[in-house]
Amino acid sequence: MKTKALILGLCACGIAIIPSLLGEGYLIQVLNLAILNAIVVLGLNFVTGFTGQINFGQAAFFGLGAYATGIATLAGAPWLAALFLSGLVAAIASLALGVPTLRLRSYYLAMTTIGFGEIVRLVLIHWEEVTGGTSGLRAIPPISAFGFRVESQMASYYVLVFALALAILFALRIRNSSFGRAMIATRDSEVAAELSGVNTIRVKVLALMIGAIYAGLAGCFFASTIHYISPDSFTNRQAVLLLTMLIIGGTGSIWGAVAGAIGLTMLPEAFRFLDQWYLVLYGSAVIAVISFAPGGLASAIPNVVTRLKAAR
């Protein structure tokens, strides 16, 4: 118990001093992006990780949340109202996508969620009067609530860390509740789950909706910390990246999802010199992980640890 508190304390200190090490600038902005991705991937983990339903629509939910906030705050709405709106828009969109399609099996579901992502992207591009078309929305106002305005990337960092902490806490609580058990039961055996009294369709829709709300709220934070959004950030390619973050981190593992998202958002910065080769290696790495460690790092690390211990 004491060691646990100590470790937590050390982590908190580490997290608190990071910004002063990086300084205001590009790196902290990337870190902020990484935290936002972690929230989005945590959301994806409900649907794909716990419930076992593939979802290529997560980037679109993220985008809907970002545009909801962008449009609302540029029109003068208070930030808190925009935050609420982002969650609501994503939730409604998830119902529209989920209710008709979650009865479908793997490949069909994959296709309909890709289709959904593609449709959202096309609407963002072509509904120019509202979305600004391909050039997107600029000068989106920063986070401001309860009399505080969060202007700098450094200040945003602390807000985002707090949001991520809440996202992790809620994910852990849901995982260890009747909802989490019903989700995993649905993934492991849909037939047995139904016959244990679980309404599996409702569980899938709920998982998609919780995931979408995570993405929508993260979208709001994205718009108001980066201040600029365009359809490019919410493509199907982005949806694929989010899924690979989850797979590499470990499908169904909350900490794996966070680690995967943060790691794979930061990594390209370290490997900039690779240029186009980076994505070639990235794709190959995903294939390798799926083939050799399908549980992702979350399962590979304990395996390696036990093996090392056994070897001693």
């Binding site: 794909t48 076992g52 339903q53 593939i54 793997s106 490949y107 994959a110 694929v240 899924l243 690979t244 797979i247 186009q276 080769w277 994505l279 070639v280 990235y282 794709g283 190959s284 995903v286 294939i287 799926i290 083939s291 399908p294």
Partner: peptide, 22 residues
Amino acid sequence: PPFLIILTTVAMGIVLENLALI
């Protein structure tokens, strides 16, 4: 499970596309 197979072929697509770009 199918979603892993789907993602593998998607990753293959990423590899091929970027090799072509190079």
